[in-house]
């Protein structure tokens, strides 16, 4: 990893809402969401680190004592090559699930940033609501929590090193999962 200028003292306090670092990360998340909503997938995948793990575990209904129900089996289990392949697929003329494209809206709230033991990496949690509609279809919606590991690669510039998509639904009520989270 090349040395990157770090904000002075990455303390827990420095990551708090209202602080410069928090604002920088929030702006990154909003820019990233805008790329997805604007179908700028090639630019979006550039924000993914070479060592990214992008995963969306299947969820099951469990009694509270057995945990939150996130399973080993996933809906997405991606590395950089598979994400690039998904993006390249969307650039073809024949990825019918997204040709013509869906219209999506990524809403992020409840963003919390935590420092990690690496000065250039931050654990970022957020609630998400992703709406999707295609053709004349009613909205399909996905709500959940996203747990990211963001890596600061330059001032105000981040890469997504991990993304864990913790969806609320046990049964996905959507045609497919042809959209990114």
């Amino acid at each position: 990893m090349s040395a990157v200028p770090q904000p002075a003292g990455v303390s827990a306090d420095a990551c708090a809402p209202g602080k410069l670092l928090y604002g920088e990360i929030l702006e990154f998340l909003y820019r990233e969401a805008a790329l997805l909503d604007n179908n700028e997938f090639a630019a979006w995948v550039e924000l993914c680190a070479e060592d990214i793990h992008y995963v969306m575990p299947v969820r099951t209904t469990q009694f509270r004592a057995r945990g939150a129900g996130f399973e080993e089996v996933s809906f997405f289990d991606e590395n950089i090559n598979s994400l690039r392949t998904r993006v390249a697929r969307l650039q073809t003329e024949s990825a019918w699930a997204e040709t013509p494209p869906s219209r999506t809206r990524h809403f992020l709230t409840n963003v919390l940033v935590k420092a990690t033991d690496r000065p250039d990496e931050f654990a970022v949690a957020a609630n998400f609501l992703v709406t999707r509609t295609r053709a004349e279809q009613a909205y399909q919606m996905f709500a959940g929590r996203r747990e990211d590991l963001l890596r600061r690669v330059a001032p105000s510039e981040y890469q997504i090193a991990r993304r864990r998509i913790l969806v609320d639904q046990t049964v996905i009520t959507s045609t497919n999962l042809s959209v990114f989270f």
């Binding site: 809906f75 289990d77 392949t85 990825a95 019918w96 699930a97 997204e98 959507s174 045609t175 497919n176």
Partner: peptide, 24 residues
């Protein structure tokens, strides 16, 4: 084999996505 399955089949699968589009 598992990773390839998740990437190609099921609701997110780069194969399956387009099948569901057809059926709908």
């Amino acid at each position: 084999s598992y990773e390839t399955y998740v990437r190609c089949f099921g609701p997110s699968g780069i194969f399956d996505q387009d099948d569901m589009e057809n059926w709908e």
